[in-house]
Simulated scan of single mutants.
Amino acid sequence: MQRLAGLALLVLCAAPAAAMAQQRQQQAQQPNYQPNYNAIQSQQANQQAILQDKLRTNQLLEEQRQRNAAAIRQPQSGNPAASQALDLSNQAQQQRFDARQRDVVDQYRAASSTAPVVLPQPVRQSTPKKPPPSALDQLHPTPPQQQPTQSPPQH
């Protein structure tokens, strides 16, 4: 009976120990990564610069369109039908401009809300450094090992 109890105790203790050993082995196989924060910040700064550039470009195009519309409107100032058509056109162009600006901002938000596409760099394990030579080694350095010389092949 004592043997059976001892065997049962051994089985109960061996299962968790085996699970822990397997978990340690899996952890040892997985590389340890840490995020590359400089790359993430660089990517975010790049996205912000692209956003500002698109917004600025759209704004300049809108200002040019408004100048062109004012130049076209001037000769048509006495014609009410032409003025009404120009107003409708101007309103449609303004709505397109607003939609373009919202689209650029929405694209930026979508890109910045997702996780960055920066791949993490593996954490480098420090390699053991060679200890400095002792005083004895400095007084009597060991000669470098000589490589055996190969004789030329004989025919």
Rank of each mutant, 00 (worst) to 15 (best):
H140T: 13
A110D: 03
H140C: 09
I40P: 06
Q145K: 13
L51Y: 03
Q138H: 03
Q84Y: 05
P128F: 00
P153R: 11
E62T: 03
N68L: 12
T127K: 11
L7F: 14
S77A: 11
P80D: 02
V118Q: 08
D87F: 15
Q52E: 14
R100F: 00
Q25S: 04
P35A: 05
N46H: 10
N38Y: 00
L119D: 14
L55A: 04
L86V: 02
A70W: 06
L136Q: 14
N38P: 10
Q29C: 00
I50C: 08
V123P: 01
L9A: 13
Q145L: 14
A81E: 09
A99G: 00
L139S: 10
Q66S: 07
I72R: 15
T127D: 06
A19V: 09
Q44E: 00
L12T: 07
L55R: 02
Q48R: 13
R67T: 08
P144W: 01
R3T: 10
L119S: 05
P16R: 04
N32E: 00
Q25M: 08
A110K: 09
L60E: 14
Q43K: 11
V123H: 05
A39L: 10
R73C: 06
Q84C: 01
Q74C: 04
P80H: 01
L86I: 10
P75G: 04
N38W: 03
Q91Y: 10
N79L: 05
Q43D: 11
Q34S: 09
P122L: 03
C13I: 07
Q154L: 14
H140D: 13
N38C: 01
Q95G: 06
